[in-house]
Amino acid sequence: MRIIIIGGSAGAFNLILSILKGLDKEIDIPIVLVLHRLKNAKTILEDYLQLESHYKVKEAEDKELVKAGHIYTAASNYHLLLNENLSFSLDVSEEVNYSRPSIDVSFESFSFALNEKCCGILLSGANQDGAIGLKMIAENGGKTIVQDPNEAEFSSMPLSAIKIYNNHIVCTLSKIIKNINNYAK
């Protein structure tokens, strides 16, 4: 099974909504969202996202197996990892890049578990999280996409990813959506 994992921070929430709206109705490739959220925030992110999607949207639970037709969100205050049997593992270890969940941590873990069967996408954000992890996905044979920094509301996350690795696909949101739909086929 292939999995798409998307990382985003400041400025990414609306992008995620647009992505969900733009997904072809027939695709069901599992999608994992790692977004920086406020600590202890009792958000209703999942409910919001559910409105825009034919997928079932839910928080990824510890040891839950990844299934088609699902969009999983990373719980706040835990890192989200993936085992080789494609079950999730949660982890409360140190923050990375001042973040938990950290996008780098998830990207690295998913690339170990999936190798080339992984597509990593990095969106707008005001820090450097995700850059190192995305490079790992690329080096392990996965597909990697970075939002065009000119389009991103906060460009430092996309920029740092491009800076340390220059073979990512760099494109605007509408192309990202097309890429996802093609990848899912």
Binding site: L81, L82, N83, E84, S89, D91, S93, S109, F112
Partner: peptide, 9 residues
Amino acid sequence: YSRASFLRR
């Protein structure tokens, strides 16, 4: 132990 976190540690 959970393999993903063991590997990470």
